[in-house]
Nucleic acid binder design. Structure first.
Length: 965
RNA sequence: GCCGGGAUGGCGGAAUUGGUAGACGCGCACGACUCAAAAUCGUGUAUCGCAAGAUGUGGGAGUUCGAUUCUCCCUCCCGGCACCA
């Protein structure tokens, strides 16, 4: 018998496929639907690692599977070839980054070939090819012409050691990824893309996408949309001259606050400005409007020096009151103080906050520190969920005044708590106020009625009110009670007998402080309790407006709308900032702009594209904030395309995330000299049916490229609003020790070595078997486990040799049934990318076939199932059993439903839900037959008299419910 | 703190969506072959128990004839956001 020699086999077929151009994909194949399967293209780091295999070889299984199912599948590959490491290598080894990059690409293509992946290399895309980046530049210019790209002075991450700007992803915990120096924020003129214009569409269009919820949620968080209102606060100065001034907008001096809680406007007791806020800057630096101008200026300067890192770590509130000015609360008309404080961010909202200390935690903290008034304008409202009894009702009109009593023990530090028996609610003594009695009287009466305690001393009103909507179980009606918190103390233990009726309602517990915390089941009584213990905090939940003039009594959700209409305007705000794309680096796409003193920023005309990257000697920037390209003076100095006067090229290059924002479009028409991709050609493949990649791209590449695509869509350059219909995040392969693979830990697996030893088919199969590919988990590489997979392939090989030699002509019924089950299962699992269970099923099949025997036809079918997973060995075996064409041209086998069902089924027998036996019956047996068969099988365990009930689940089980003593 | 996703043997992971928990693989144990070892093949392998049996899917309650699966509460782990008004 021949040995399974993976080296020979894999090399032979890889050559053969290349010779036959087996993987070149045509744009149209008659009778086949197109399908676009995309994986994130590779960075040419120089070496293929296990992660690449996991990223490329496993989706290849899916691609081959879909081809077998009759789809014309595009599975392209390319290189994301611009970027920092090339430059670093160049600086270190005195190499040209281009030389380094292309050498790496060549080497990696050789490694990729060993995978046996069905990449169509005729469509290869390399982002640092001028033929590619001319179109990156061209698209950038279309955005510029549409106003989507603009230049602005913004803060950039500056590494003082490497003398260069860093991309956000190169800053790790506030330090430079490369040298570890603390990164500074420098104001620099940078190119930006208006991704914020697309914030709403980027969020709203997510709903239609077949993406994991995790990615969608991360993108929503990243964009950070808040809906609220802008409200103007006019300013009032002690110095009359300032009061009469009219500002540039034609209005008197004012600041505009952004808030998500316009309903709390009546509770706004001061206003806080960010140190960078524009009115403040003018008032302090130009007009000197403040009495304590110097003090405020010093605070602003101090804030500027604080790094982001420092600001994040030290969250202690600080701030300065602006003397000589106050703001007018537009709702109350009151004059309220104005502060500058660094807890307000200049880059979010308007940089102005209307501070409502009663209903915002940060404002509360600040107000406490600066002793500012705290005015509550929302009375908490809760809806008690009492199980199935709860009735969804309109807010009941019959509001009832009620009390809730925190009662202290007569001698210990314990408190009287009640646990309701019929309702999932635990709390204190509560009750309505009857007739004309006072709160105190009502409280004492309720304490007596509910607990029997007679001698109670009233201590104080807590000043905390809680509204609760609930379903009254005994009275069977919806209620709205307005509970006012009261504090009592028992003077002694004297207790009356309470009625039986009351006893049925609840249990009494005396609990210490910690126990009370845990005992209170719902959030409502927690507020009362906190207040009783002297804890004060901001209430940020929903409720009913009070102390808010005509809005009193409104639910805050409604009040939001009306107060916004009356005093402000509805406005959305986002956490997302515009995308800064300027990089002061050499190895990137030159930004195709020419700066002219007379004409300003002028786009390079289409005929002059691409603006090719010039050769320079030194790739490290000079330290003046300019890109290394600035040193290529010949290249920099050009004529203005408009006025032909002296002008200079833009010397910054584009962020590499720009390059990767559209690479998938180029695959559809890679050789086009006139367009980045012909729209008709795009349409044959776009949108992408499945995009598989790493979780690290969730809020970067995936968001950027969605934006880019939408912008292209608006320019009518692409035909669809979203590029990726379905996205899957791949998991991570860890080292054998369960830690992330890293050279320093010495746990790196070299795929080349494993392939040499065990073969590409084994590695592919192992990676597919390691865990479900459709869930992004992390899986340790297990050197023993991969040997198990190799063993499986060897058994398949041996089974093949046996089949060739044997003369078995008739199929074993069980093997035949299992084969059809396997076709079904493998097909279904592949469709969901659950390759692990698909392989498991094939293993089961081989195990059975080994013992029961297999016909040549059955074996041939099995080989077709395995082909997408292990393309080389199956090709070999396929030819071995007498076929001339490639197994990869074979259609996916079909299963016969009739062959799936067996004649008899095993019925489980349960007694009281516990397994007590089993019985085999005919598959088509009726209920009664099954029941009596089951009864006979466990007759020694039960008698007819004791059987209370019998549950028969056809084809599965019989459960006898019997009396037990 | 808010949001999203999780938790199943010694390990990676299965379980037709309410119906035999632990498929398949690894590991481990024993056996066969061998002078021996490797490789290969066979048998066993959730826990406790000699057994009958009992327990068991992060913990606690609930619904159900029956719960890994549904409901509520809690703990822990992973990911995103976070002084974002």
């Amino acid at each position: 018998m021949r040995q399974y020699d993976h080296k020979k086999i894999e090399k032979r077929w890889q050559k053969e496929w290349e010779k036959k151009k087996a993987h070149v994909v045509k744009d149209k194949v008659a009778g086949k639907k197109n399908e676009y399967l995309l994986v994130e293209f590779a960075y040419p780091s120089g070496n293929l690692h296990v992660g690449h295999w996991y990223a490329f070889a496993v989706p290849d299984i899916y691609g081959r599977f879909r081809r077998a199912q009759g789809r014309n599948v595009l599975y392209p590959m390319g290189f994301d070839a611009f970027g920092l490491p090339a430059e670093n290598a160049a600086i270190k080894n005195k190499l040209n980054p281009r030389t380094w990059t292309y050498a790496n690409i060549k080497h990696m293509k050789g490694q990729l070939a060993s995978m046996g992946a069905s990449f169509d290399w005729s469509r290869e895309v390399i982002t640092c090819d001028p033929d590619y980046y001319r179109w990156t530049q061209w698209q950038f210019l279309q955005f510029y012409k549409k106003g989507l790209a603009y230049q602005k002075e913004t803060a950039a991450n500056w590494c003082p050691n490497d003398k260069t700007v860093l991309a956000n992803e190169q800053v790790v915990n506030g330090r430079c990824e490369r040298c570890g120096a603390e990164v500074e924020q420098r104001q620099m003129v940078q190119w930006n893309l208006k991704i914020t214009d697309y914030a709403d569409r980027l969020i709203d269009d997510l709903t239609k996408l077949d993406w994991p919820e995790q990615i969608k949620e991360s993108q929503r968080n990243w964009i950070g949309r808040s809906e609220g209102a802008q409200i103007d606060f006019f300013l009032n100065f002690e110095n009359q001259i300032f009061n009469d001034r009219i500002g540039p907008t034609g209005k008197k001096a004012h600041v505009t606050a952004f808030t998500t809680r316009p309903d709390t406007l009546y509770g706004a007791t001061y206003v806080v400005l960010a140190p960078e806020q524009s009115w403040l800057t003018r008032a302090v630096y130009e007009d000197q409007m403040l009495k304590n101008n110097d003090e405020v200026k010093a605070y602003i300067e101090k804030t500027k020096k604080r790094s982001d890192l420092e600001r994040q770590e030290n969250k202690e509130k600080s701030g300065i009151r602006l003397e000589g000015v106050s703001a007018i609360n537009p709702a109350t008309g009151e004059k309220i103080p104005v502060f500058v404080a660094d807890y307000v961010l200049g880059s979010y909202g308007t940089g102005v906050v209307m501070a409502v200390p009663a209903h915002d935690e940060r404002d509360f903290e600040f107000a406490k520190k600066f002793d500012l008034p705290i005015k509550a304008v929302i009375e908490p409202m809760f809806t008690a969920k009492n199980g199935e009894d709860a009735v969804k009702a309109e807010l009941p009109l019959n509001r009832r005044e009620a009390v809730v009593c925190v009662v202290k023990h007569w001698s210990e530090d314990k408190y009287l708590c009640l646990k309701w028996k019929k309702v999932a609610w635990s709390g204190f003594v509560t009750g309505g106020i009857d007739g004309s009695e006072s709160k105190e009287e009502a409280g004492k009466r309720e304490i007596l009625e509910e607990t029997g305690y007679k001698n109670v001393r009233f201590i104080k009103e807590l000043g905390q009110v809680v509204n609760v909507q609930f379903y009254h179980v005994l009275k069977k009606e919806n209620r709205w009670a307005r509970f006012q918190g009261l504090l009592f103390e028992l003077t002694d233990s004297e207790q009356e007998q309470i009625s039986e009726e009351e006893k049925d309602i609840h249990d009494i517990h005396w609990l210490n402080r910690d126990e009370v915390e845990k005992f209170l089941s719902v959030g409502d009584m927690k507020l009362i309790w906190d207040r009783a213990m002297g804890k004060e905090s901001a209430y940020t939940g929903s409720g009913i407006l009070v102390s808010s003039s005509q809005y009193d009594g409104l639910a805050n959700q409604e009040a939001k709308k009306s107060i916004t209409e009356k005093f402000g305007r509805a406005k959305k705000t986002y956490r997302l900032r515009d995308w800064g794309v300027s990089r002061q680096r050499y190895w990137g796409v030159p930004i195709p702009i020419i700066h002219c003193d007379d004409c300003g920023a002028v786009p390079v005309p289409d005929k002059d594209l691409p603006v090719k990257l010039p050769e320079v000697k030194d790739y490290l920037p000079a330290g003046d904030g300019k890109s290394p390209l600035a040193k290529a003076t010949k290249w920099v100095n050009v004529k203005c395309p408009q006025c032909k006067g002296k002008a200079m090229r833009e010397t910054d290059t584009l962020d590499t995330f720009v390059d990767s924002s559209w690479y998938f479009l180029r695959y559809t028409d890679p050789k086009n000299k006139k367009q980045f991709a012909n729209k008709k050609k795009q349409a044959t493949w776009m949108p992408i049916d499945l995009y598989s990649g790493g979780a690290e791209h969730t809020t970067m590449h995936l968001l950027y490229s969605r934006f880019w695509h939408k912008a292209l869509y608006d320019l009518k350059l692409v035909g669809e609003k979203e590029p990726y219909t379905r996205r899957m995040n791949r998991g991570l392969i860890l080292g054998p020790d369960g830690a992330k693979m890293s050279k320093s830990k010495g746990n790196v697996i070299d795929p080349d070595a494993v392939v040499a030893q065990l073969g590409a088919d084994t590695v592919r199969l192992y990676l597919a078997f390691i865990g479900p590919y459709n869930e992004a988990g992390s899986y340790p590489w297990n050197p023993d486990s991969i040997v198990g997979v190799r063993r499986f392939l060897e058994r398949v090989w041996r089974l093949g040799q046996l089949t060739v030699d044997s003369k078995q002509l008739t199929a074993d019924a069980e093997v035949e049934r299992l084969l059809h089950k396997t076709i079904k299962k493998v097909g279904e699992d592949c469709a969901e990318m659950k390759f692990n269970t698909a392989i498991s099923q094939m293993m089961i099949f081989v195990n059975t076939a080994e013992s029961k025997g297999i016909t040549r036809a059955q074996y041939a079918t099995f080989v077709r199932l395995l082909a997408p997973f292990a393309p080389h060995i199956t090709e070999e075996l396929w030819h071995e059993i007498g076929n001339k064409k490639s197994v990869h041209l074979e259609p996916w086998p079909k299963y016969d439903k009739k062959k799936l069902v067996s004649d008899t089924v095993t019925i489980m027998i349960q007694i009281n839900g516990k397994l007590r036996g089993e019985v085999r019956v005919a598959a088509d047996a009726d209920k009664d037959t099954v029941e009596s068969a089951a009864k006979r099988a466990v007759a020694d365990r039960l008698t007819d008299q004791t059987i209370q009930r019998t549950i028969v689940v056809p084809g599965r089980l019989v459960n006898f419910v019997v009396l037990t003593r």
